[in-house]
Design a protein around this nucleic acid. Structure first.
Lengths: 340, 340
DNA sequence: AGCGGGCTCCAAAGCGCTTTGGCTGTTTTC
DNA sequence: GAAAACAGCCAAAGCGCTTTGGAGCCCGCT
């Protein structure tokens, strides 16, 4: 069933039917009702390819997926997707993932924009001075960044969490408990979130006259194994920390294991705070010692970003503004006063 | 730059240019070269919407993403996606995720097929007599199922792993070590993979005159917490098992914790085998006691399915045949002879 | 009467590509 | 040497939608 058939059936022109369906004013109410009725009854659905060709609007939001033999997609992605999908579903938006060589994402961004395959794009895991953001900005397609870049000479739309404040608060709490040797097991420093987190921890320490030496920092891909190694090397080194702040729950698995392997106890010997992105399948309260966390649902972020993307597509949202969400600090049993 | 401009520039008709670019025979080699050259030089790329409208081919593969407030996307999905994307990248295929209400996916399947939004579709987490598969089969769009359904009265294309053999082998190994009370912590039984796994374990036991009573089975969503609860209730019950087979590494985290909380030791008191889908961020060899696993890379499955999908789209693969991959059994320290 | 102005509605022109059905001129065939 | 085959190219007709530029009609106003 296409427009022509439908309009023939109604003895109306395609123009009128199209307008009636799309809510244009130059159609009488009665006609509109008749058309809407017939459309529903016959299950008419405009062919999206045709519509796209005619209008340039795609009804899809795009994401460039870095791939490659040694490229691992972040498991957080799936939670984000849950949120995004949840919103998109109610708004007739599909999501198209365009796989790209992780070393050359630009070509793919250019392609999806040039082809008008999508109406808007979102970017995740931004890096400092992220070239993808500059590119999208130049290309003039609506986009939202999940997170923030740094050192860009223009504004752009983003939704982020306050990583700096989160880790500042976490460190501050540990300091209040008497800890002075605090270590940070962070994600890859090429990502801005990791930079912000380190900055937050560092500032809290500085505020109390303490420092965060390079020797107290590990910055690695967020896997269980790396968490283990990092914790182990920290705790076995000179000036072993009495408290550790860890950037992810997955790494914390390894951290907890390392602490135990060394015959230490949480929180008696080591206090631990981790960042929790809220996975349904791994909860900080279920760790052998429930973990104190800085918590922010990445799923909610997905929903919010879908919402903003939709608003941008329909022109309801404009301007290059960002929003930064506060992060909860949830205290559980994994922290305690400094061992004497 | 569109076809018209390009053909004007070359003083050729659009027909000829289009044919030259698409490899039709009725174009002289010299002309073809000229055209290809000019196309590359000016960065001409056919507009996909136009092409789609004209041919009905979309260059995209579809996936219906179940969403909803209480619907969690499986973290395995992201690994699968890695593989899929890795192949798709080299073949100019995009992936479109169409979010659907988890209670009504059919409408969405119908839509993406009717709209010709995608050339092929893949289905994951099949259930017994899965209606999505019947629907797709009826609608006549190429599709591949990741996994298998059961009780369908027609054949369909699928790629699956041999869950039954995997768990049969795991159980058999435990039996050889002297275990007679073997428990199974499985995924949700509405999924066929879980049914096959239970069947495999049950058969191995039956072959040795043993049984797998309902009291020795837990069938739950695969989270850390559920793993803990399941293991705990098994080990605290009457006739506590001396060996546990667990359907996922994530659940195993909880299982290991439960065992330790009860003051038991792996493998002295309890042997543990888990299924490993091969996540980069959680490896069985890094567990406090390295885990014996049945192993199969879900990422490889993603690649393979993308490959088959592409072959179906181009008509190179036809017929409703399935392939079933063997699963590795990797022995590590988590199993031992039965405690005396 | 005559005329400007709302309302409704329509024919036709795109959007950029593929594909059908020829049309020319050159080769082959008997 | 005429007929048939073929290679190489083209004009134009879609694909199904939106949108431009009117057309017809009825109304009130001068």
């Amino acid at each position: 069933m296409n427009l022509k058939q439908l309009s023939d059936m109604l003895a109306l022109s395609q123009t009128t039917v199209s307008r009636a369906l799309n809510g244009y004013p130059e159609v009488s109410e009665e006609t509109r009702r008749r058309v809407a009725d017939a459309a529903k009854r016959h299950g008419y659905r405009p062919n999206p390819s045709a519509r796209r060709l005619a209008t340039g609007k795609a009804g899809m939001i795009g994401y460039v997926l870095p791939t490659g033999k040694s490229v691992d997609i972040d498991p957080h992605f799936v939670e984000f997707l849950s949120g995004l999908g949840d919103y998109a579903r109610g708004h007739d938006l599909d999501l198209v993932l365009s796989p790209a060589d992780a070393n050359d994402e630009e070509t793919t961004y250019r392609r999806i924009v040039a082809n008008k395959q999508v109406d808007a794009v979102y970017v995740s895991s931004p890096r400092p001075a992220d070239r993808r953001i500059s590119l999208l900005n130049r290309l003039g397609i609506p986009f939202i960044v999940h997170g923030r870049s740094e050192g860009l000479d223009f504004e752009y739309a983003h939704t982020d969490i306050d990583n700096e404040a989160a880790f500042r608060d976490a460190a501050r709490l540990l300091i209040q408990l008497g800890h002075t040797r605090i270590a940070l097991i962070n994600g890859d420093m090429r990502q801005t979130f990791a930079i912000f987190r380190e900055r937050g921890a560092r500032r809290a320490l500085a505020d109390s006259g303490l420092s965060l030496p390079a020797s107290a920092i590990r910055s690695v891909a967020m896997t269980d194994e790396n968490g283990y190694r990092a914790a182990r090397s920290l705790l076995e080194g000179a000036d072993a920390p009495t408290a550790i702040i860890c950037s992810s729950l997955i790494m914390s698995l390894g951290v907890v294991r390392a602490i135990r392997d060394l015959g230490l106890t949480i929180p008696r010997d080591v206090s631990l705070v981790a960042h929790d992105d809220v996975f349904p399948w791994l909860r900080p309260e279920n760790f052998s010692v429930p973990l104190t966390t800085t918590r922010s649902s990445i799923r909610l972020a997905g929903q919010r970003i879908a919402e903003r993307l939709a608003a941008r597509i329909s022109g309801q949202e404009t301007g290059a503004w960002g929003e930064v969400w506060p992060v909860d600090l949830v205290v559980r049993a994994s922290i305690g006063s400094v061992p004497t």
